[in-house]
């Protein structure tokens, strides 16, 4: 056994057999080892000044933000000027390309206000990225998931997703991209939607819906805002599996059905899983069971 090998390691944890202790005492090592352990456990370093430390961290971060790039001068003195010029230009492009990324995990949504007072509300399990600087000149946001935008007038506001792009001039609209579905609803103003080469202009209360194969349809709008902002998710003739995916995102659980994939129209609330599950199960005549740890839910006949 390797036990024999680690005899000194086990001395510290007090896991020696009597025989092993005896052995160490007999070969004269016991006293020295005890002295080493005692003396070494009395060694100490000066305590870390935590208050000073934390303020230093914030200071560092502030400086880093101001200077953005501080590099040691690796170059000879005679090219220092050229180097610093290159650094200046480099750091300009570096700064300009810096991105901010906001993301939400399951069951959490968040709101962000841009420099120009445009706002975005990010639904659960979604992400947006945008450039850190020159926002007012270059209003471009990359979206993965679902978000509601309220855009102030100004330069073109572009939301790029993996599935298509939306450009606007000042409006309110909701974009949803989950599992290959691309759904845009315009609540105010006008937006232009580009999807796989197709261009469509949406006016107030217009919506466009592209399925996995790029097929276009026009869903009805039932109210004047994105439902999820008001704490519910609404569906109109969607497959149950699609509804359950949204349930998973909103509650951070896994949801399954062994009752097939019937079509569902209706809504479920955010905030109470049992109520939400009831709202889905009742209209479909299904039953459901929530696991004891509330991490999964199963719908059945």
């Amino acid at each position: 056994m390797s036990n024999e090998e680690n005899i000194y390691a086990r001395l510290i944890t007090g896991d020696l057999s009597e025989q092993e202790i005896l052995q160490l005492k007999e070969n004269g090592e016991w006293k020295t080892l005890q002295a080493i352990l005692k003396t070494s456990s009395d060694l100490a370093l000066p305590p870390l000044d935590k208050e000073k430390g934390i303020s230093k961290i914030y200071q560092n971060l502030e400086n880093a933000q101001k200077e953005a790039v501080v590099k040691r001068n690796y170059f000879g003195r005679y090219i220092a000027v050229a180097a610093s010029l290159a650094l200046l230009i480099g750091s300009y492009f570096f700064l300009m390309s810096q991105e901010i990324s906001l993301n939400t995990t399951a069951a959490i949504s968040l709101e962000h206000i841009f420099e120009d007072q445009s706002t975005v509300s990010l639904n659960a399990a979604s992400e947006i990225r945008f450039k850190k600087y020159r926002w007012t000149k270059d209003r471009k946001v990359y979206l993965d998931g679902e978000a509601y935008f309220s855009v102030e007038k100004g330069s073109p506001f572009i939301v790029a997703t993996a599935l298509g792009e939306v450009r606007v001039l000042g409006t309110k609209f909701n974009i949803k991209t989950h599992n290959g579905l691309f759904k845009v609803v315009c609540y105010e103003g006008k937006v232009e939607v580009v999807h796989k080469g197709q261009k469509r202009i949406l006016e107030k209360n217009d919506a466009a819906y592209f399925d996995k194969n790029g097929k276009y349809s026009k869903p009805e709008i039932t109210n004047d805002g994105a439902d999820w902002l008001k704490g519910s998710s609404r569906f109109r003739g969607e497959k149950l599996s699609f509804v359950l995916q949204e349930l998973e995102r909103q509650y951070g659980i896994t949801a399954q059905s062994n009752a097939g994939d019937p079509i569902f129209s209706g809504a479920f609330q955010h905030g109470n899983l049992k109520t939400a599950a009831n709202q889905i199960a009742k209209p479909l005549g299904l039953k459901f069971r929530i696991s004891d740890d509330e991490k999964s839910i199963l719908f059945s006949k």
Binding site: N6, Y8, A9, R10, L11, I12, E29, T32, I36
Partner: peptide, 12 residues
């Protein structure tokens, strides 16, 4: 454990 053992083996 191995590193600890070897450390004490040297220190003793």
């Amino acid at each position: 454990e191995k590193r600890m053992h070897n450390a004490l083996k040297t220190l003793k």
